[in-house]
Amino acid sequence: MLIQCLNGLVYGALLFSLASGLALMFGLRRIVNFSHGALYMLGAYLGYSIATKLGFWPALVLSALALAGLGALLDAAVFRPLQDRDPLIILLVTFGLALIAEDVVQTIWGNDTHSLAMPALLAGIVELPGSSFPVYRIAIIAFGLLVAGGLSLWLKFSRVGLFVRAASFNPTLAAIQGVDTDRVSLMVVAVGAALAGASGVVAAPILSLAPSMAADILVDSFIVVVVGGLGSLTGAFITALILGQINVLGIVFAPEFTALLPFVIMVGVLIWKPTGLAGNRV
């Protein structure tokens, strides 16, 4: 049971590190980014290629940086020009970008699954009462907590964090105070994309790399963002942890309902509290 709970935390941490970027982007740009899962997938594949030459840690850093650049490009070329258009257009465009990314991955890396070796530093096992647990999986939980803590501190105590919080609540009001909301948005999308890329690399040693990996986790990420409260990091954190437990414990205790349960919870929460659990912005 303890092992299952820990595995739930591992998945919850991964979900949060991916969904946090999605939540930040929605909070600031009011966009539903269907290509976010593709950023995660590209990060994983890029990390795989870099790791084969330079090892895991450079792959983690370089992949996150590359995805940050891609995120900045995405914001400047897609999100900003389309921000005042019908949300359905952005949804369709980002969905199209996700399909393109999947094709690119299939062209470069093929349809076969790949795996990335975990770093030697984290390759051990931790002995627990009655069982054991991989150190790498504990490191993933730590990664999720690090992302949550880092983002919270950044948003709460930095000057840019103040601007992000202001702009996510009322972008026009923030802008007339002198906040360059375009630049802040670019930064946030870049950070969100970097987190997606880093999450892909972090997940790669425990999940298989396949072109379908984007879609697999994207749905759960959207549930995290919607149930948590659109744009809310705190809500996303709580929901990711709950969803992680549901996913893992569901497989053990009610495998026939595991796929269904997150959607049932989402519908229930939205009926009970349409603004989501936290119900406010970043």
């Binding site: 103040l162 609540f169 923030a174």
Partner: peptide, 19 residues
């Protein structure tokens, strides 16, 4: 007035110094 409810009084003031 346009006071941001997700910011404290101090943070609302600091926002004014964005420029």
């Amino acid at each position: 007035r346009g006071i941001l409810q997700n910011l404290t009084v101090r943070e609302n003031l600091l926002l004014g110094a964005a420029t």
